[in-house]
């Protein structure tokens, strides 16, 4: 099987690669959103504690 054949997917390239692409986008967005939220939560709590300690 050649590389062209692989990407051509027997004429179904649009449908197959759209499915896989969509899945990759959704899964990666879920991870990024969850990780950034955890960082944001920790930072907010750290800032809040500094504020209360500074008072």
């Amino acid at each position: 099987m050649s590389i062209q054949e692989f990407f051509h997917m027997g004429g179904y390239a649009f449908y197959v690669w759209s499915s896989y692409g969509l899945c990759a986008v959704v899964m990666i967005l879920n991870v990024l959103q969850s990780v950034s939220r955890q960082k944001k939560t920790l930072n907010t709590l750290i800032k809040r504690q500094r504020r209360t300690l500074g008072q």
Partner: peptide, 26 residues
């Protein structure tokens, strides 16, 4: 598990163990 950790921190933000955890981090 990652999402649950954020939720726990928000849920428990006034408990002693979270305050200890935060002061250890900062």
């Amino acid at each position: 598990l990652i999402r649950a950790r954020s939720e726990i921190l928000e849920y428990e933000c006034n408990s002693t163990w979270v305050e200890e955890l935060i002061s250890n981090r900062s």
